[in-house]
Simulated scan of single mutants.
Amino acid sequence: MLALTRKPGQQIMIGDNIIIHVVDVQGDNVRLGIEAPKAIKIYRSELYQAIVEENKKAVASSHENVDLANVLKNK
């Protein structure tokens, strides 16, 4: 992990096409602005983790349904 110190108004470049702007700092809160191509999805980590968990549940549920369908076919 790279740790950087930035002040409001300063930026961080990621590759050639992603820019992180430090918009504001108030106490323990930091506001960031992110410029990236529209094809790149940007999520807060807690939201991303929730999406991953829901996808895992959907896949597990899908597998259960397929297995149940196979059982019913064989009867």
Rank of each mutant, 00 (worst) to 15 (best):
Y43S: 08
I42G: 00
S61Q: 13
K41T: 10
V22P: 02
G15W: 01
K41P: 09
Y43P: 02
H63R: 11
L2W: 03
K57G: 00
K57L: 10
A50L: 04
I51M: 11
A39S: 15
E53N: 04
L72N: 11
K56E: 08
L68A: 15
E46F: 13
R31S: 06
N55E: 12
L72D: 11
A60Q: 15
N55S: 13
R6M: 05
R44W: 01
H63K: 12
L2N: 12
V23T: 10
V71H: 06
V52C: 05
I18Q: 02
D28S: 12
D28L: 04
E35M: 07
K38N: 14
K56N: 04
E64V: 08
L4M: 11
Q11A: 09
V30Y: 04
A58M: 04
A39H: 12
K73Q: 07
I51K: 13
D24C: 09
V30W: 07
K73I: 10
I18C: 04
R31P: 01
I34A: 07
H63C: 13
A50D: 04
A50E: 06
R6G: 05
I18D: 00
P37Y: 05
K56W: 01
N29C: 04
T5C: 03
P37W: 04
L2V: 13
G33H: 01
S45Y: 06
I18Y: 00
A3N: 10
M1P: 01
A58R: 14
K75A: 07
D28P: 05
I20F: 04
S45N: 01
Y48F: 15
R31F: 07
A60L: 15
I18R: 03
K41E: 13
K38F: 07
E53L: 09
G27I: 07
Q10S: 10
K38D: 15
A69Y: 15
A69H: 08
L47M: 06
V23M: 04
A50P: 00
A69E: 13
E35I: 13
Q49P: 00
I40C: 05
I20M: 03
